[in-house]
């Protein structure tokens, strides 16, 4: 298969079942809502070392938020509900509660809840109070600038993490431009995040290493600078590779974003688009590139 003369390899991206929480962060204005959200989702590129994968999905107008103030919608992905509780407690407690004028709400229906506001409330030292509005409990914790409002429970649902595709290009500049264009298009889609810096990852990894204790290491098969040394199967002329990793609230969100992203990335100078998998033995979701682009 070819799109704009770019070869699309007949392979698939292997993705995994994850847990997702949707968080609405509001503040006095969009600037402070974004500040809190960026901090809370920061250091959230990979569950390998960050504990969660997180990102900002969109900004919300006052009529889309529970308190009528500007807000931001963020997604957090973890491997379990227990880990989600830990991550949200740490991230919302340290990054959102500390941010001036902020408030924080559950943004998703369904799933099983984890208690977040109901635990962070103890920071109020006995002066916290709650409001039960429309069957949702909100905790109010006094702060030096007013009060921090956080919802008692946040729902955690099943999700898909690790959708991906690789852009193989003739040089670094073209490769980055294609990846940036793909990310720009994909960012407009709902229900997904691309957790790596700017949505792009250059340090694609493989499981295992020659070193004891190192569980993952660089995906040498996609490093053009050592392609002859490792016997990589990169097409001739490939000098740069970038990967886009996608986490989505469901299979369809990942599939659609991969489809749009790959199409956008097929620019002149791109030699091939492929995807990463582990032979189909580890992940429960397989996104076949030809299938999703033909649909």
């Amino acid at each position: 298969m070819h799109i704009n003369e770019v070869e699309i390899e007949d392979t698939f991206a292997e993705a995994f079942g994850m847990k997702v929480a949707t968080v609405i962060i509001t503040a006095i204005n969009e600037k402070w809502a974004k500040t809190a959200a960026q901090l809370a989702t920061g250091f959230g590129t990979s569950i390998i070392a960050c504990g969660c994968e997180a990102g900002v999905v969109s900004t919300l107008s006052p009529d889309q938020t529970p308190d009528g103030r500007p807000g931001v919608l963020a997604l957090f992905f973890t491997t379990s509900r227990k880990e989600m509780e830990k991550q949200l407690l740490n991230r919302l407690g340290q990054c959102v509660m500390t941010s001036p004028t902020s408030a924080c709400y559950n943004g998703m229906e369904g799933g099983k809840p984890v208690t977040i506001g109901g635990k962070l409330r103890y920071f109020g030292d006995g002066f916290q109070s709650s409001k039960l509005i429309n069957n949702r409990r909100f905790w109010r914790i006094p702060m030096m600038d007013g009060e921090f409002v956080i919802e008692e429970k946040f729902n955690v649902c099943s999700a898909v993490g690790g959708g991906n595709f690789f852009i193989l290009a003739e040089n670094q500049k073209v490769c980055l431009a294609a990846a940036e264009k793909a990310v720009k298009v994909m960012k407009k889609l709902p229900g997904i995040i691309m957790p790596f810096p700017g949505g792009i990852v250059r340090s694609g990894s493989k499981i295992g290493s020659k070193y004891k204790g190192q569980h993952v290491s660089v995906n040498t098969s996609y490093c053009p600078s050592i392609q002859r040394q490792v016997g990589a199967d990169l097409p001739a002329g490939v000098n740069s590779v970038l990967e886009i990793v996608i986490d989505g609230v469901d299979e369809e969100a990942v599939r659609q974003s991969m489809c749009e992203g790959i199409r956008a990335a097929c620019l002149p100078g791109i030699l091939k688009i492929t995807a990463g998998n582990y032979g189909g033995k580890l992940g429960q979701y397989h996104f076949h590139l030809h299938k999703i682009l033909s649909a």
Binding site: T26, I28, P62, P66, D67, G68, R69, T101, A103, K131, I133, N134, F138, R140, G146, E147, V149
Partner: peptide
Amino acid sequence: IVQPVFIGILLKYLKELGIVFESDMTG
């Protein structure tokens, strides 16, 4: 003198129930 966020949640909820306010009291 404070700007309580929870009042915004209450007003939003009442608005959703159908109350029409003369002016926006949020914030």
